[in-house]
Computed example of a mutant assay.
Amino acid sequence: MTMTADFHSRTRRSSDLSKHSAEVFAEAEDHPVIVTRRDGEALVLMSQREAEGRTRLLEVAAQLISVVTDDRGTIAERMTKVFPWMLALSESDREVCAREVLDAALASFSTEQPHLAIAELTSWKETATALAAGLAGADLEWLDVETPVERP
């Protein structure tokens, strides 16, 4: 799977960028746009959010590759070396966390959607942080699941 193949329907000519810049910029806010040029290599125009998401996904990929290429201990034990915040989780939660983060990463890589892996990793880290802060024993008041709540 290549970026070029994925962007095939999102290609614009450089003349579109000069003649219809607002339209091309609006498109680039939604998804990366390949800008082809007669005199040079094609360029990709994307939002900073998109670029940062891809960079973060590559960082997570590098961390996970170091986890899966290590052969000492369980996957959860190896992940705690890379993500020490996992030590705040119970042993069973570490196993669940490891599996869910790896599954989300695979989904992110397969669909080119960085937010899947990043959100899963962030969610687990926030859970570990809350547990470390002693918020595990808080009494919860559940809303009535039968009563619909309007979205904000």
Rank of each mutant, 00 (worst) to 15 (best):
L45S: 05
M46K: 00
M46G: 07
R49N: 06
E50C: 07
E50Y: 04
A51Y: 01
G53V: 05
T55G: 09
E59R: 10
V60W: 10
L64Y: 04
L64D: 12
S66D: 10
S66E: 14
S66G: 13
D70N: 06
R72T: 11
G73W: 01
T74E: 11
T74H: 02
E77K: 03
M79E: 04
T80S: 10
F83Q: 01
M86F: 06
M86S: 06
L87P: 04
L89W: 06
E91A: 13
S92Q: 01
S92K: 05
R94E: 11
E95Q: 14
E95W: 08
V96D: 10
A98F: 05
R99V: 15
D103G: 13
A104E: 04
A105E: 12
A105V: 02
L106Y: 13
F109H: 13
S110G: 09
S110L: 06
T111F: 00
E112C: 07
Q113C: 03
P114H: 03
P114Y: 01
L116V: 15
A119C: 02
T122C: 08
S123P: 06
K125R: 14
E126K: 10
A128Q: 01
A130F: 11
L131N: 00
A133F: 08
L135C: 04
L135T: 01
A138C: 11
A138M: 07
D139W: 10
E141F: 06
W142C: 08
V145Y: 10
V145A: 15
